[in-house]
Each structure stands twice: as C-alpha cells, then as structure tokens.
C-alpha cells in the first residue's frame, strides 16, 4: 500500500513538474520583455539577459517622443479596428445565426453550407484580391479598408447559430409575437439578451483575431498614421536594423502592446469557459 501511495505521489510530482515547465516556457518571452524594456540601448546587448536595469521610464519617454507619439496612435488604431470590428461582426453574426437557427426559409441549407465553406477558406489568401478590389473604389489606405473585411466572420455566424439554437426557446419567440412585438423588437429585447454569454465569446474571438492580424493591414495601409500596432512594430523593427538605438523602443513598444490584451484576458477569463446555464435559459 505504501509503495502504491509513493508511486501515485511520484506521478503527481511528475505531472506538476511538467505543468510548471510548460508554464515557464510560455512565460519566458513575457518575462524577458519585462526585463529587457528596463535596459538602455547599450545594456540591451551587453548585460546578462535576465538582469533588470532602471531605464524603463526613459524608454517609455523615448517611445512617446518618437514622431510625436505615433506609437499611441497605433495603439488607438488597434483598439478601434479590434473594438469596432468585433462589435459589428458580433451583431451581424447574431442576426445571421438567429435567422439560421430559428426560421425555415428557402435556400437556408445553401446559405449555411456557403458559410461553412467560408470557415475553411484560408483568410489571408483573400487579402491581395481584397486589396485590388478596394483599390478599384479608392478605399485602400483608409480605416475602412481594415474595418470592412473584419465585419464578416463565418466562424462567428456558425457559433452564433449554435448559441441561438441552444439559448433561445421557440416558445418565447411565439409569446413575444403574440404580445404584438415586431421581429426586430423581439430580436433586440428578447433574443440578444438570451444569447449574451455566447455573444461575448464570439466578440472575444473576433477581437483577438483583428488585434493580432498583420497581413491585411500590412497590405491595405500605406500611411503609418493608420497602422495598427502589429504593422507599426514591424516597421520599427525594420528601422532598428539600421539604427540599433531603435531596438529599445521596439522592445518597450512590444511590452506596452501586450498589456491591454493580457488584462482583457484575465478580466474576461470566465468567458473562455463559462456555464451556459448562467445565460438565463431554464427550458
């Protein structure tokens, strides 16, 4: 019996060790950027990698002074692209998912199959033809060039359809109809609140997808005042190849850029794993 317990103990130690190793591997680059952004340009390439220094504030000031605070503009642009893009995309997905889950109509299975095929289309392969088409109507190099393509998310529609089917009982829709509420009113007052938790997840997926996107804005935008943070940092890094002093700004910029998304993740953790029953449906 004792050997058995000892064996189990060993196994549990092994499991814990593996998990901690995994966590350490994932945290290493984050820890590094935290330390590296406190180093001056000279120290970055000379002192021991994991030895912190005291220049974090100087580096932030440098970054802030880079072309009159262009960096903050990139951050604001990213928030705009991801926030507006994900919000509109969630609403459009909710409407489409609701229609697909709760109505019978001609062409329904065709529409659904087309959307499923859309889920499997490699997104970035679309970027160049999208650019050429938007160039024809003179919309490249504008906020719209990045926003409009992010409004449509086949995966979001697919998820919204599942949530609508699971969370919105048909009886409630009929009750609302009998009460004389129009379809749009029912959607806004009854359906949306019921799908709320699921829609937060749809929103988060699209928000992260737009926030992390590189190729689409890289192709669409020429004016660096419109850049999101990913394209901006890529440009800064390219400049660093010629003037290594830029590297501290790149590193500090990288650190500051991941703080908002990590904060969002920690704050909304439960939406990455929530109980649907909490969504208010007791059918």
């Amino acid at each position: 019996m004792t050997t058995m317990t000892a064996k189990k103990q060993n196994r549990s130690t092994l499991a814990t060790t593996l998990l901690i190793l995994g966590a350490a591997y994932c945290l290493l680059p984050v820890l590094w950027v935290l330390i590296a952004s406190s180093k001056s340009a000279g120290e970055l390439f000379s002192t021991f990698t994991l030895a912190p220094s005291t220049h974090l504030w100087d580096n932030i000031v440098d970054l802030n002074n880079y072309r009159d605070g262009l960096y903050w503009r990139w951050m604001a642009n990213t928030a705009l692209y991801a926030g507006v893009g994900a919000a509109v995309s969630t609403l459009i997905s909710a409407m489409a998912g609701f229609a697909l889950a709760k109505f019978e109509f001609r062409g329904k299975s065709f529409v659904f199959n087309v959307i499923l095929a859309g889920v499997l289309v490699p997104g970035v392969i679309l970027a160049i033809p999208q650019y050429l088409l938007l160039a024809k109507v003179g919309m490249t190099n504008t906020y719209w060039a990045v926003l409009l393509p992010s409004f449509i998310s086949p995966y979001g529609i697919y998820l919204a359809r599942i949530f609508a089917a699971a969370a919105v009982p048909t009886e409630i829709l009929e009750a609302s109809r009998i009460d004389g509420a129009g379809d749009w009113r029912t959607f806004a007052r009854v359906v949306l609140p019921m799908m709320r938790t699921g829609l937060v997840t749809v929103f988060l997926f699209q928000f992260v997808a737009v926030w992390n996107n590189f190729m689409l804005p890289y192709i669409m935008l020429g004016d660096d005042k419109l850049y999101p943070i990913t394209v901006g940092l890529n440009g800064l890094l390219n400049q660093g190849a010629n003037q290594p002093a830029m590297y501290t700004s790149v590193v500090t910029g990288a650190l500051l850029s991941i703080i908002p998304l990590i904060a969002l993740f920690l704050a909304l953790q439960r939406y990455w794993q929530v109980d649907l029953a909490a969504g208010g449906v007791k059918a």
């Binding site: 196994r11 998990l19 995994g22 966590a23 680059p29 996107n213 940092l233 890529n234 991941i258 969002l264």
Partner: peptide, 29 residues
C-alpha cells in the same frame, strides 16, 4: 492530482501567448 493553485497558474500561463500577436511573439523570440 495536481494542486488547484498550480493547475490554475499553469492554465493561465500556457493560455497567455494566445493574447500575444504573432508579430510581437516573433519579435520577442
């Protein structure tokens, strides 16, 4: 079998890179 606190720490840490855009991840690495 793993302690709750360790398991939670590992889960959040390993999920964290999902919040880091590929451009920034490539820059750090």
């Amino acid at each position: 079998r793993t302690r709750e606190s360790i398991s939670k720490f590992a889960r959040i840490s390993i999920f964290l890179p999902y919040a880091v855009p590929a451009v920034v991840a490539s820059l750090l690495w």
